[in-house]
Design a protein around this nucleic acid. Structure first.
Lengths: 144, 144
DNA sequence: GTTAAATCCTATTGATTTGGTAGACATTAA
DNA sequence: TTAATGTCTACCAAATCAATAGGATTTAAC
């Protein structure tokens, strides 16, 4: 399951995608519109900024805005940043690989194969889920 | 990520699949062979038994053994039992559905779609990953 | 240059989950 | 009767998650 932090991050990014190229949006507004605790959101946006997904402008009239085009930001990257590995086993993770203590021998482990398939399918879907596609879908579904 | 409990359960089941129709295997043996803390394994096997995945025999000469054929036990069921939902969002889970607090309106949520696809792909792969296939793979890979 | 509005940063907290342990009890084979 | 085994309830420590507190810093506007 995705953490709340990750879900908040996704919702905040979608919101900023809707405001793309309209200047900085401040935390307070995102927090209110998306019902996210402001202080928690603060930490999340900061993390997204440090990962170069967002830019920020300090001081009066400041706020956050997308660093890249909505079509260049996908759920795979956001989830990896917020929650870490996408794979279901550490020993099949591409970005957060760790040896499985439980496996005596990774080469002959019979269960890894299925989880490698799951990982690849998942990455393909989430890698293709970009902010612009999410926005388009919401419009198509009639969101106001 | 799968919990340790879930990984232990899978390894224990694979071990019991290798001993299928050879009578009860006791906890101690599984714990030693698979390097699982005995007391923890005890609780896990009990849960698998309550879910009708295993049978047990009490008293001297007792132990655990598979309830069904190895070809009838798959990773999807084991994971659901041990860790709960397989889906990445509660609102797309088939067996553990819950409303997403974050979504104002599920019907118009633009992100659910990707997670439904991930869920379906994952279920298909894990549903097909049966104990007998895992055993065959281990043999093919040369496990001793 | 003062002030108000905003982000930035560090630390802390409470609740829940995870991983594991202790010990008594019940059942069965020999 | 006894030793071996599963069953059950309770407990505990550490980690993680979700959230909060309280300033420090930066900037625009006056």
């Amino acid at each position: 399951m995705l953490s709340k932090k990750c879900k908040y991050a996704i919702h905040a990014l979608v919101y900023l995608a809707e405001r793309y190229q309209e200047g900085p949006v401040h935390i307070q507004e995102i927090a209110e519109k998306k019902s996210i605790p402001k202080k928690f959101l603060e930490a999340i946006l900061l993390e997204l900024r440090n990962a170069k997904m967002l830019h920020s402008k300090k001081g009066k009239g400041g706020g956050y805005y997308l660093y890249q085009k909505p079509s260049d930001v996908n759920l795979m990257d956001v989830i990896r940043l917020m929650d870490g590995a996408i794979a279901m086993l550490p020993c099949v993770s591409l970005n957060y690989y760790e040896k499985c203590e439980e496996c005596r021998n990774e080469k002959t482990c019979g269960i890894r194969d299925s989880f490698i398939k799951v990982r690849d399918q998942t990455l393909e879907i989430l890698g293709g889920a970009t902010l612009d596609k999410i926005m388009k879908r919401e419009k198509a579904l009639g969101a106001k």
